[in-house]
Design a protein around this nucleic acid. Structure first.
Length: 297
DNA sequence: ATGGGATCCTGTGAGC
DNA sequence: TGCTCACAGGATCCCA
């Protein structure tokens, strides 16, 4: 719908959600031109959790939805759906559509970043991201996970390692791959890196096909909730029976993120000897010891 | 190198 | 009914 449409008007209601950069990476006050006023949208791209709206002449907007962000197209014949926490509105027209694109983000963990070119976007922002999760290959994934001894869930959530996996999908992926989230990244077997890569692709594709996971208020570009939460095997099911083996699912914390795990069918890979924490000179503990010391929820 | 805690912010639900 | 508190899809910083 957006590709080929012209941006007739832009209104930025909250300045602090937008960040504008020049070619040399310096920061400046966002102008409506930076938000593509008068431009025609030529294409949309995505890398990990970030998407871009690209004009034909070069400038582009990078959008991150954070935890509560929404990017919502509303036909102009409708009254604006929900005015609260709307931070930016684009009025767009094409031969086939006429309406508004609305950026709404109650918690403001998301935002808009504008760049004069794709090159500037990569130099300032996307070069820091790892390969996209949907297309990462087994060998690349293995190479990147082998560079760290963090718990595998911490590595999967790190956008510099692989881009596009959040808390819900990390839990679903590790359950499907039968790998415990506290497994040491560089300790899982070669076969399991292959399983993990395939599982990442499979879960994300299925989630996208279902329109995403709406657990609270997520909506897609048409204002519709996603239905993948109905398919969650572990996320949102603490203390309920594992759908694979019947064991009660545990809720633990991994890097301060709620993590749901089946203690029976998710194997822990912790290598021969694990130093944990790494700055503990006297104590050498296994990841299992670490779990045993965690408070039960 | 890594985890923990704090921080940014609002909405929701539980418990009292 | 109204109050407080904990927690929620993310990401970054500082400190130990």
């Amino acid at each position: 719908m957006l590709v080929g449409a012209r941006v007739r008007q832009v209104r930025l209601l909250r300045r602090d959600v937008a960040h504008s950069f020049t070619c040399d990476g310096s920061h400046h006050r966002t102008k409506r031109r930076d938000l593509l006023l008068g431009d025609t949208i030529e294409s949309l791209t995505r890398h990990g959790k970030e998407l871009t709206i690209n004009s034909g002449t070069g400038p582009l907007i990078c959008v991150h939805l954070g935890m509560s962000g929404q990017l919502w197209y509303q036909p102009s014949r409708l009254h604006l759906q929900r005015r609260d926490h709307v931070h930016c509105i684009w009025w767009i027209d094409s031969p086939t559509i006429s309406g508004r694109l609305v950026f709404r983000d109650p918690r403001r963990f998301g935002g808009l970043w504008t760049f004069p070119s794709t090159k500037a976007l990569h130099a300032t922002r996307w070069s820091r991201l790892g390969p996209d999760a949907l297309s990462i290959g087994t060998q690349t994934l293995r190479r990147r996970l082998c560079q760290t001894r963090r718990p595998i869930k911490a590595a999967l959530l790190d956008q510099h390692v692989v881009a596009g996996i959040g808390n819900i999908y990390a839990d679903e992926i590790l359950f499907a791959a039968q790998i415990h989230p506290l497994s040491i990244s560089n300790s899982i077997s070669t076969m399991d890196y292959r399983t993990l890569a395939h599982t990442i692709h499979s879960i994300l594709r299925r989630a996208i096909a279902a329109g995403g996971s709406t657990t609270h208020d997520y909506i897609d570009g048409h204002g519709q909730p996603g239905s993948f939460a109905k398919c969650h095997q572990v996320y949102g099911r603490p203390l309920q029976p594992c759908l694979r083996c019947g064991q009660q699912l545990q809720s633990i914390k991994v890097i301060q993120r709620t993590t749901i795990v089946c203690p029976k069918c998710q194997r822990i890979f912790n290598g021969p000897r694990v130093r944990w924490p790494s700055n503990n000179r006297t104590g050498v503990r296994t990841a299992i010891d670490h779990i045993n010391k965690m408070p039960a929820k």
